[in-house]
Amino acid sequence: MIEPPPLVAMIHAVPTGARIAQEAFAQEFPQATVWNVLDDRLLDDALGAGGLTDALRRRMLRLIAHVLDGGAQGLLLTCSSYGAVVDTARTLWDMPVLKSDEAMFKAALTGPFERIAVVASTPPAVPAAMAQLEALIPAVRADRPVDIVTALAEADADADSAEATARHLADALGAAGAADADAVLLAQYSLAPARGPLAELLGVPVLDGAGAAVRELRGLLTGGGGRTATAATVAP
């Protein structure tokens, strides 16, 4: 009997992130059936509220419930600003639920880098990334110190090419005193097209999260069989 392809859901806050994640699946996990859910108010509402509110957390949990109850065997949340909601989801469902950049952060922390820069173009992505990195350090890199610096490149929103985005990111890293980092982490999927140009400008490795996340999902869903979701009630 031929096993059906795994159904993997992605929840997106911006169309650009959706496109980049879909490209990563096409390259890294083409046998998966991908289910895309887009709420294009998620990021703007978080920005307007100054961060995640209880109402926004409940809203994301309802979206997660929707796809997992609908048969998804795994989930990738592509909006880094909502990564904290994944911790709650993991207590409610026995199913692979991945944060957008967690796999990338693990790769960076296990690598040889002593000074890591995290760059974003939306303010909520910076504290979300730092929270994830700081939570991972005790388990992944307790034996070696690491210096983590951040930069915010809000001007990137007006960039019309990957090269222009890279220049904005490089300028923001320089202004933040982070241009001497050993590696740069892109804290949003929408920045992924600038990875190559930015690496050329800075001369250091630049990591993005989509490919790493998809590879982790591929391993979880094809390496040991599927898991079933436990019942969970999400507040309206």
Rank of each mutant, 00 (worst) to 15 (best):
A120P: 00
T91L: 15
R167Y: 02
F25N: 03
L220H: 12
R90H: 04
G50D: 05
A181I: 07
G219V: 03
R90F: 07
A24C: 07
D156H: 13
E163M: 02
G83Q: 09
M130C: 01
A89K: 07
A172C: 03
A65M: 04
F29T: 11
S81A: 15
D54A: 14
M130F: 01
D160W: 05
E200L: 11
Q73S: 05
S81H: 11
L136R: 01
I11L: 03
T228S: 15
G17V: 02
G203Q: 12
S121T: 12
A179Y: 06
D171L: 00
P5W: 02
D182C: 00
R195D: 00
D40G: 06
D158I: 05
M60V: 14
H12I: 05
F25K: 02
P112N: 07
T53M: 07
R144Y: 02
P193V: 01
Y82P: 13
D44H: 12
E3R: 13
I116S: 03
P236F: 15
V67F: 09
V206P: 03
D158M: 11
D180A: 15
L207A: 01
I64D: 11
T88N: 06
V140L: 04
T53G: 08
Q73H: 15
G51A: 07
L221E: 10
S121Y: 06
R57G: 14
I64Y: 13
L221S: 10
P197D: 10
M1E: 08
A235Q: 15
A159S: 07
L207W: 06
P123M: 02
D54H: 11
G177S: 06
L136I: 08
A212T: 03
E23A: 14
P30S: 08
E28N: 14
A131I: 02
I116N: 01
T228K: 14
P4C: 04
D208Q: 10
A199P: 11
G203V: 05
